[in-house]
Amino acid sequence: MIFARDLVGQIATALAVDGLILRGGFRFTDGEAAPTGPSGASAKSALLVGQAGAAPWPYFQRWLEQQARDIANPLDTWSREVIGSVAQGCDARAVSPSDRPYLPFQQWAMRAEGLKPSPLGVLMHPQYGLWHAYRGALLFEDEISFPEPHAAIHLCDICVEKPCLKSCPVDAYSGQGFAHEACLDHVRGSRGEPCRVGGCLDRNACPYGTSYRYPPEVQAFHMAAFARL
């Protein structure tokens, strides 16, 4: 078993150059259907890579300015390049949440950080609130020792008012799940400008992690990608 202090520190330093952070890790259990590592053998350990707030945005923007204007899925492409480069330097395989077939990134994230979903589906973080993301993972064929995630208070359990379920003009989030088509129709329609310009109103209504809230231009970028505007 490899003890991860030096390895994790080196990887964290390499990711920080582009505003990314490590989001915890875990070991696959015996008999688990794990994805493959860099040589094609089953992975034994995973490190999740992501962001807190909009820290990667300026690095991504500088990269984007140097690319063809019609590049598809630019944020995914940038994330793959950055995380893939780090993977090459630490004998790991880089994978992305948008890879097909889809990998269970949300389950991995809950496993690595001990988080739970908010009513909006985004995992609630005790520090970042809803303003964080997972951009990829590094898969290793060695068993790496990680500390157990701390049991965090699930902030949604102590939130009485639930403003995240009261701010959407079309009630896109409810106990019945996410009304995808209703959300898209509204965002694309004549009354959807507040969402297009400033992001999801329900997400912005959450009282937690507000110091990490994405700036309007970042939220507008993500909303345009979601709605294919």
Rank of each mutant, 00 (worst) to 15 (best):
M1S: 11
I2T: 10
I2H: 06
L7K: 09
L7Y: 03
L7S: 00
L22T: 15
R23C: 14
F28Y: 13
F28D: 07
G31K: 10
A34V: 07
P35N: 09
P38M: 01
A41C: 02
V49Y: 05
A52S: 14
A55H: 05
A55T: 08
W57L: 06
Q61H: 08
Q61R: 14
R62H: 05
W63L: 08
W63Q: 09
A68K: 11
N73C: 06
P74S: 09
R80L: 07
V82R: 15
I83H: 05
S85C: 00
Q88W: 03
Q88C: 06
Q88D: 09
C90D: 02
D91C: 01
A92W: 07
A92I: 14
A94K: 13
S96F: 09
S98W: 01
F105C: 02
A109H: 13
A109C: 07
R111E: 10
A112H: 00
G114C: 13
K116Q: 14
P119C: 00
P126S: 04
W131E: 12
A137I: 10
A137M: 08
L139D: 12
F140I: 12
E141W: 08
I144E: 13
F146K: 01
P149G: 13
H154V: 04
L155V: 11
C156Y: 14
D157F: 06
E161Y: 11
P163G: 08
A172I: 01
E181T: 02
D185A: 12
H186N: 05
S190N: 06
G192H: 02
G192N: 13
C195L: 07
C195T: 04
V197F: 02
C200S: 01
T210Q: 15
S211V: 15
S211I: 15
Y214F: 15
P216S: 12
H222Q: 14
A224E: 09
A227N: 12
